[in-house]
Design a protein around this nucleic acid. Structure first.
Length: 825
DNA sequence: GAGTTTGAAACT
DNA sequence: CAGTTTCAAACTC
């Protein structure tokens, strides 16, 4: 059974074209069917598009890579047949079967149409080029503010026509102009261009052809599109969109990463290629048909790639904290991981950008990447993601989604992946070397990372292979039942840092402040100066969560990380106020949309309640999904009307914030202290910074932050929206303010205390340092509460059993079927 | 490459 | 839940 030979035979379908290509590639390519996402699911997840559109999309680099080319089309255009499908779904939103049938039909049609069209994979370069050239350079002239209105909100009803409602029904989160939608169906060609400018693109929820709708997909993922459990699919139903939903509104690049990650996972499944093995299993996206798991047991596929994150996180912090593509990649890997989970001992380059298929992105960004300089890649600050060109950013997200949408048939992503894999050889990735655990315990880095062992591994009696999926899953379940966060990233990266900050800190190439080990290390002899220390290994500084002795972590010492009482007090006060504000309508939305620092939670198995909660929190954070309980769906996301309402609160927040900052600034901070300060600043400022896309062309930072976080609007629209700048205006300001004031606590669970404390059954390891616990207890309690309140409950780790009822726990529901939810509320 | 050290994971 | 054992990576030679 364990025979590697058999494994190879069984799993290796794709022979490495390049010598460089690792075994990994083989395994990935051969991912069992169960890992693949069912077509039906895929189709359901996407909006049908017309042939014309499909062609355009197919030809487009985005193949999904290019958002610009893809999004508009897919959004605006739909065949009549497809429209019917949508209509059907709309009319019978809760009738998954019907909807499914319609989509399926549409999918098939689209597929047929698509055939014969150049795929990106076939001729990536050409396709890409073509797509780019073809991309409409339309600028959104519409009032951006429109985007900010909640789908469920009154504003929508006012504006939206019948057609619009339909659209909303599927893409409630998007605040697009109703009028736009109505026209779309009528005239795709025209609408296409117009659509580019409009938020409407977001509305496309379902795309029969993943390929073409990759962009859309991506968007959803990145921007926290509503999960598609929605009425249509039903609770258990998984769709790529769900993945995307993991982050409804990525507040920042980090979020995006997370999204991508989950995406990646999904893709892996759908594509039948394994990127992440074990993890995925947890999420049996696996089609029901393939997996023996009942739907109920199938949590959201999102899994969020925690594992991936982990892997990524594992990368040197210089890279982790810094790493342009990497961050994105990381995101891709672990959508959720939005942060970094350090994979202490295992370096898994395969999962790096390259492995994810993002390498090409890097290439785009810079030719240097190709030289195999991983370091360079990783050297970019995650926060610096913002610094990436919009193109790069876009492409980062695309691949993963594309894969999903391709449903394994084609793959632009595949193309990248192969390339990446080929390039990976140099990495000399070191895999596990387990001898006694059969690679079924967390001792095994591969297993812990949610990936199957591969040839590079020197493990003995390995069961962490696709052939033993059942065993792996079962084991994972056991472990997760014991510790829901067992597979969660160990290191949470703070994506909040603005490029400037990152640079400043990174002056020495290390960015300790940007990430923290969730649990904290427990080093006794290494003084956190060796890789024995997980913090050090992750290139992150030790924090109060660490129980290390004699900490000398070069990335930040434990003691230095602590907060002064004053700061804590202020923080507490701030958080209280924040909470108070949060109670107000709309504010929740903001919080929910601050996933940036939340750790991606591995997809957990539903069977565990507490785990479920934990995962919820994680997912919710990531996804920025509105908390069902909070009735977010009914709440307008930063509606204009709320501006004045918030202004007062905002002032209060600003005051507190200022106090905190002042205190922090007066502290004598050494390197570590700087981090502490940073953290604080991040708490209040970081969010915005993290999402700061100043460097992105045509994308005003303010706009970015606004759209990314607060609106479901896809980046595409925003990117294109040079005009968005002015459009944002007051709403934007509001968003900025809110986000600016948003305490990390709400957006980040990175703090060891918070993160670990909540879900880990094993208090021993997870519990925060005694010293800090008491100290932080009071102060953090508020934040923690908030986090639970808005984050933990927001997203269930697995699909709800019932559409809207579940919506209670399923934010996705809210998104997808806002009206229903709103009506309930 | 073997042996040692280390600290996380697992177990009691 | 603290203490112990097991484990595999990290490290040393």
């Amino acid at each position: 059974m364990d025979s590697p030979e058999n494994d190879k035979a069984a799993t290796t379908i794709v022979t490495s074209s390049a010598s460089t290509r690792g075994t990994r590639a083989k395994k990935i390519d051969v991912l069992p069917d169960k890992y693949q996402m069912p077509k039906t699911q895929v189709s359901r997840a996407f909006v049908p598009c017309t042939k014309k559109e499909c062609a355009s999309m197919a030809s487009s680099p985005s193949g999904g890579v290019d958002e610009d080319s893809v999004d508009p089309l897919e959004v605006e255009c739909t065949d009549s047949a497809q429209s019917e499908s949508l209509s059907l779904m709309k009319s019978e939103g809760k009738d998954a079967g019907k909807a499914l049938g319609g989509f399926q039909a549409a999918l098939e049609q689209a597929t047929q149409e698509l055939q014969g069209k150049p795929s990106f994979e076939e001729n990536p370069a050409e396709t890409y080029k073509q797509g780019v050239s073809e991309m409409p350079s339309v600028v959104c002239q519409k009032d951006v503010s429109d985007l900010q209105y909640p789908p469920c909100g009154p504003s929508i009803s006012q504006h939206a026509g019948a057609a619009h409602e339909e659209v909303l029904h599927y893409a409630p989160q998007f605040m697009a102009e109703p009028s736009q939608f109505t026209q779309e169906n009528e005239d795709c060609s025209e609408s296409t261009r117009e659509a580019l400018n409009k938020p409407a693109e977001n509305m496309i929820l379902l795309d029969p052809k993943g390929q073409q709708h990759c962009g859309m997909h991506r968007r959803r993922l990145q921007f926290g599109e509503a999960p598609l459990y929605n009425t249509v699919n039903g609770p258990s139903f998984w769709s790529p969109s769900n993945i995307g939903s993991s982050s409804n509104l990525p507040a920042n690049p980090g979020d995006s990463e997370v999204l991508e990650t989950s995406c990646q996972e999904v893709r892996a499944n759908s594509g039948g290629r394994q990127l992440i093995g074990p993890n995925q299993p947890t999420i049996p996206f696996s089609s029901p048909r393939n997996s023996g798991y009942s739907s109920s047991t199938v949590p959201r596929p999102l899994g969020i790639g925690l594992h991936l994150n982990s892997i990524i996180n594992a990368m040197p912090y210089g890279s982790a904290a810094t790493g342009s593509m990497k961050s994105s990649e990381r995101g891709c890997l672990n959508i959720e991981g939005r942060k970094l989970v350090s994979m202490p001992r295992c370096r898994q380059p395969e999962i790096t950008t390259k492995s994810l298929g993002l390498s090409n992105v890097r290439e785009k960004a810079s030719a240097s990447s190709e030289d195999g300089s991983h370091q360079n890649e990783s050297s970019v600050t995650t926060g610096s993601l913002a610094s990436l060109s919009s193109d790069i950013v876009k492409s980062l997200y695309v691949p993963a989604f594309c894969d999903v949408s391709f449903n394994g048939s084609i793959s632009f992503l595949e193309f990248y992946r192969k390339k990446a894999l080929a390039a990976n050889d140099d990495d000399g990735c070191k895999r596990c070397n387990c001898k006694k655990t059969k690679c079924l315990k967390l001792y095994c880095d591969c297993f812990a990372a949610g990936i199957y062992c591969a040839e590079p591994c020197a493990c003995q009696g390995c069961f962490n292979r696709p052939e033993y999926e059942d065993t792996v899953l079962e084991t994972r379940q056991q472990i997760e039942s014991r510790n829901p966060l067992a597979f969660a990233p160990k290191v949470v990266q703070r994506m909040t840092e603005s490029p400037a900050n990152s640079n400043a800190e990174d002056g020495n190439a290390s960015t300790p402040s940007s990430a923290r080990h969730k649990r904290g290390c427990n080093c006794k002899k290494s003084m956190c100066l060796k890789k024995y220390c997980e913090c050090y290994q992750s290139n992150v500084g030790c924090s109060t969560g660490c129980r290390c002795e004699g900490c000398k972590n070069v990335y930040g010492r434990k003691g230095d990380y602590g907060m002064t009482e004053d700061v804590l007090r202020l923080e507490s006060s701030f958080e209280k106020k924040l909470e108070m504000i949060a109670s107000q309508d709309g504010f929740l939305q903001t919080e929910l949309c601050n996933p940036h620092n939340l750790t991606p939670l591995t997809p957990s198995f539903p069977f565990s309640d507490h785990r479920k909660d934990a995962s919820k929190s994680q997912f919710s954070a990531r996804r920025c999904l509105p908390s069902p309980e909070s009735n977010v769906t009914s709440l307008p996301p930063y509606g204009k009307s709320l501006v004045s309402e918030y202004s007062h609160s905002h002032d209060l927040l600003l005051k507190d914030r200022k106090k905190v900052e002042d205190i922090s600034s007066h502290q004598e901070l050494d390197y570590s202290n700087v981090e502490a300060v940073d953290e604080f600043s991040l708490r209040y400022d970081g969010l915005l910074d993290s999402c700061d896309l100043h460097t992105l062309p045509n994308l005003p930072s303010s706009v970015n932050s606004l759209s990314w976080r607060n609106t479901p609007t896809t980046p595409v629209a925003q990117f294109r929206g040079t005009l968005l700048n002015r459009a944002v205006n007051s709403d934007q300001k509001l968003h900025d303010i809110l986000e600016d004031d948003m305490p990390d606590i709400l957006k980040d669970d990175s703090t060891p205390l918070r993160a670990v404390k909540v879900s880990s059954p094993n208090k021993k390891r997870i519990s925060p340092p005694r010293s800090s616990l008491k100290e932080l207890g009071s102060s953090t309690s508020v934040g923690l509460r908030i986090g639970r309140k808005f984050i933990f409950q927001a997203v269930p780790s697995f699909p709800p059993l019932t559409p809207c009822a579940d919506s209670k726990n399923n934010s996705s529901q809210n998104i997808d079927d806002p009206q229903d939810c709103s009506s309930k509320t």
